[in-house]
Design a protein around this nucleic acid. Sequence first.
DNA 1: TATTGTTATACTCTATAACTATA
DNA 2: TATAGTTATAGAGTATAACAATA
Lengths: 155, 155
Amino acid sequence: MNDVKPPQAAARPVTTSVVFRLGTLGSVVTARYTEALAEIGLKPKHVGLMVALDSGAPPSQLELARTMAVAPSLVVSLADHLEQIGAVDRVRDPADRRRQVLALTGAGRALLAECAALAHRLDEEVTAALGASEREALRRTLGVLGAEAGLPTHD
Amino acid sequence: MNDVKPPQAAARPVTTSVVFRLGTLGSVVTARYTEALAEIGLKPKHVGLMVALDSGAPPSQLELARTMAVAPSLVVSLADHLEQIGAVDRVRDPADRRRQVLALTGAGRALLAECAALAHRLDEEVTAALGASEREALRRTLGVLGAEAGLPTHD
DNA sequence: TATTGTTATACTCTATAACTATA
DNA sequence: TATAGTTATAGAGTATAACAATA
């Protein structure tokens, strides 16, 4: 006699994997954060560049491209925009005039703080279904995995 | 006297938010999963469509587009490919000949199981730094948030 | 006339390649 | 000749708009 089979194709459906759940949730959450950032004229990658600068990454554009794992040409356009709104200074390295050295300005630090506030406000919506200790455990665990993957992670 | 300030721009840096960590980790993990899927000729959205079908979502292409929150034209091309490799059947609804009704074939269920195996294998790499109970807690918490966001989540 | 699916087209994001200037 | 940055071009992914078949 045949066993009764569940509608799922596998004993361990793909939907139960951390990979699937991280990927789908990450994309939903990033879409919402992108929407929030749009109101201050930024994209997630602008935040990524400011985070890299704030974390003390080597500040030449090429080094930043390596840190962020994006093409150097993308750093150019991100830096163009951030410079235009006064969030970063861009000065030629006097020791090697080929290098453009980026630095967050005071306004840039304030803008980054605003991005952080938006993210933490979204956190409350996204994690509303969790208890305080679950939320903290999640933050902490994601921090561990992020650090493992070479992502910038304070704490 | 001045307080000593950390290099970070804010008391709660954006990098500590669940939103930032989920977004960045999700994108890293999805990139790795995309790479793994490429070896069986699939993209993550193909998996998403098969998951929707396997989860009993309404199977017309337009309804699937709504379920997946993508454009109907994208469902066409995903279904084209899955049909071509024999993973889905596509039959006109006799009751309404405008509707194309999709269904996973046996081969499709086997393919989806393969995608699940790839994901769970990647899980082991991605969560290698975690203890077994931390890993389970993470899976469970991501499941809660995913369900909250309307994502397919068995268990 | 409204709806499903399809095809044609366009847009966004990002990369690669070509180029300029400095070394 | 090699490297940092920039600009030009191209590709992937996905959306919107136009269209065909069916209701």
